[in-house]
Design a protein around this nucleic acid. Structure first.
Length: 399
DNA sequence: GCGGATCAC
DNA sequence: TATGGTGATCCGC
């Protein structure tokens, strides 16, 4: 910063303004993108299936690492990616439940089934997160009847296990009145056909024609099917939608309308850390040059132009304009595959080689499962001091 | 292509 | 007492 003159800053600002104009002229507000995010997913599944956990601070994972915590535990500062024993220190009452991956996978499948009815080309990021392009759905939605926009919901959101917890939309029928109005018909009065438990109180809810109504319907369908809540963000691009899904968490949604004015007033005050891709380190570095909000990315564009690479600078300029990707596409071919394990201290070379061989066999198996070969082999080692070193070698042929 | 780093989940 | 695993990307050589 010291050697950058005010002339250089001015020149850089002009360069930046050209780039900003270019990005601005390519701005696409024609798409409606939604980011859906299950609330405290793993913890919520465990609480659903074990009522005794519901009023306790709890986290899912192990003593070495927590994957997620429930909202009660978060009040104590217990967070994802925190070692379990630290969590216990912050909250001695903390209950730690081991991971049940198979369960999360099957719940995730149920959710994906619902997402697919809104956008068949939706793109999932992980078990609990996905992006959808609802542009098509909203167009189609204008022609949907009231019945097609109605679903059956439990009136109370309690998870009393004495009652049927199946999706009522599969056990109870909805019929259409002669005047087009919607009526509910109980086809299995009192008791659920599947689980044989009494059916709880329910009501018919009809959703409107807007994106926001569509997303409410989607979240409601997810809740009826899985007994879990989701939050969602609606915006003209993926970057903004992702930020929005966090605004009214848990069990909420937020929408940035598709106008330049709405996008700009939303992005202005937003702390840079909220943007996916800007982590702890980038935040600290940007803070150091006086950038805390997205507006300040713009204000300091002359300086950033000099301090960062072309790629990073372009990224920052797109952020301060509120521009992001408008095409949700399935990710392409995988580019790498790896296996790593953390184990207690070993220093004997024989033991280290044997550990390495184990991992090689395991990786080879994984590669064969997807019928893949690799050309660059990387070995990674972590010391007791948590130093990480990698050594890579590219082979003449795939192996 | 390599090694160090950051980031997301 | 003790801090994961996987995949992607970027930077500077």
């Amino acid at each position: 910063m010291k050697v950058i003159s005010s002339e250089q800053l001015e020149i850089a600002e002009k360069e930046a303004d050209l780039l900003l104009d270019e990005f601005d002229s390519l701005r696409d507000l024609s798409k409606t993108i939604v980011h859906v995010d299950m609330d405290a997913f793993y913890a919520a599944v465990e609480m659903r299936d074990n009522p005794s956990l519901r009023d306790k601070p709890m986290a899912v994972g192990g003593n070495s690492m927590l994957s997620t915590s429930n909202y009660h535990a978060r009040k104590f500062g217990v967070r994802a990616a925190m070692p379990g024993f630290i969590g216990k220190k912050l909250c001695p009452e903390l209950v730690i439940v081991p991971l049940h991956f198979d369960k999360y996978t099957s719940v995730s499948k149920q959710v994906k089934g619902i997402l697919g009815t809104f956008d068949p080309n939706f793109c999932s990021v992980s078990l609990d997160e996905a992006y959808l392009d609802l542009t098509e759905h909203v167009l189609k939605r204008q022609g949907l009847s009231e019945k097609e926009r109605s679903i059956i919901c439990r009136t109370c959101d309690n998870l009393d296990t004495n009652f049927c917890l199946c999706d009522l939309n599969e056990t109870i029928g909805v019929t259409c009145g002669e005047d087009g109005s919607v009526k509910v018909e109980v086809t299995s009065p009192g008791v659920c056909n599947t689980c044989r438990k009494p059916i709880p109180e329910f009501e018919l809810v009809t959703f409107g024609l807007t994106v926001e109504e569509a997303v409410k319907e989607m979240r409601c369908r997810i809740q009826q099917r899985t007994c879990l809540t989701a939050s969602a963000g609606i915006a003209p691009n993926m970057m903004l939608a992702k930020v929005c899904s966090d605004m009214n968490k848990p069990n909420g949604q937020y929408c940035v309308p598709s106008t330049v004015e709405d996008v700009m007033s939303f992005i202005r005050k937003l702390p840079i850390r909220k943007i996916s891709g800007i982590g702890k380190v980038s935040e600290r570095m940007l803070n150091a040059v006086g950038v805390k909000t997205c507006q300040e990315l713009y204000d300091k564009r002359g300086l950033l132009y000099h301090l960062y690479s072309q790629i990073s600078f372009n990224y920052f300029m797109r952020i301060c304009l509120g521009i992001g990707s408008t095409t949700v596409e399935r990710d392409g071919e995988r580019k790498s595959m790896s296996t790593e394990r953390t184990f207690s201290e070993i220093s004997s070379p024989t033991e280290l080689y044997s550990k390495c061989l184990e991992l090689c066999h395991s990786l080879a198996e994984d590669l064969q499962e997807e019928e893949l070969k690799g050309k660059t082999v990387t070995i990674k080692i972590k010391t007791v001091k948590f130093d990480v070193k990698t050594r890579a070698s590219s082979l003449p042929d795939y192996t």
